[in-house]
Amino acid sequence: MALITLMVNGKQTSVDVDPATPLLWVLRDALGLMGTKYSCGEGVCGACTVHVDGEPRRSCVLTALQAVGHQITTIEGLAADGTHPLQQAWLAENVTQCGYCAPGQIMTAAALLAKNPRPTDADIDAAMTGTLCRCGTYQRIRRAIHRVAGQGGA
């Protein structure tokens, strides 16, 4: 165990964890930030996606130690009051079914739009392919991203 200082959602916070702990479990078990989801634990589903210095990263395959010194943003920190344009678009397009994948999808899409405010369908495919939704909400996810792009980006 070691005291590790992380910068999560703009706040500096220290946790006493095994430095090899995946960031996912630090967020969920130590910091109580439950929006970042576990589904595969090996980087193939995207449910645990957070931003690390603005880049989408899978927190289940990133250790706490690797996260030190970087700005980490979770779904809870994407917008102070949950009104990020993508969160609103998710509601407008009625994307969610079970909603379990929503945080990872939204974080992945937010990183895409931050770089590419007008993504094509091919851009969306490339960015979002690894973020799985068993409920099959994909066409609504696509529409939600286009909706935000159409409003002038995120």
Binding site: M34, G35, Q87, T96
Partner: peptide, 13 residues
């Protein structure tokens, strides 16, 4: 819109 959707997109537990 599904009742729980706003909580879902905010990542509520």
């Amino acid at each position: 819109t599904l009742y729980h959707a706003p909580s879902m997109v905010r990542g509520e537990p």
